[in-house]
């Protein structure tokens, strides 16, 4: 089963078994992972599901749309090179992804 590892700003990690096809955001929210708010439910409107993807895993992910790119300029904690909106990352077969959540989303 695909696994997503969510590490919060303080360094503690929660590992969640994820369903293929769900987003990394949905997986977090449904299981109550703190640090991901996702007000808009994944419709790419709010930029409150910001995560930092582990650098060496970034390339495995499909690239981001222009809309996601622009939305990332409005996140509460400033974007970095490894920033993504987790609603736009779909869980795939065999995925083993490490993300860190920012200190604050709103």
């Amino acid at each position: 089963m695909p696994t997503i590892h969510y590490t919060d700003a303080a360094g503690s990690t929660i590992d969640i078994n994820a369903n293929v096809g769900d987003s990394v955001m949905e997986t977090a929210v449904r299981n109550g992972v703190p640090g991901i708010v996702a007000e808009c439910g994944g419709s790419l409107s709010c930029a409150t599901c910001h995560v930092f993807v582990r650098e060496d895993e970034l390339e495995q992910l499909p690239g981001m749309s222009e809309m996601e790119d622009e939305m990332l300029y409005g996140t509460t904690e400033d974007r970095r090179d490894n920033s993504r909106l987790s609603c736009q990352i779909k869980v795939t077969e065999g995925m083993d992804l490490h993300v860190t959540t920012p200190e604050t989303q709103v």
């Binding site: 930029a47 809309m67 622009e70 939305m71 300029y73 409005g74």
Partner: peptide, 8 residues
């Protein structure tokens, strides 16, 4: 379709 304006 103008998220930068929205965010600003």
């Amino acid at each position: 379709n103008a998220p930068l304006d929205f965010m600003a």
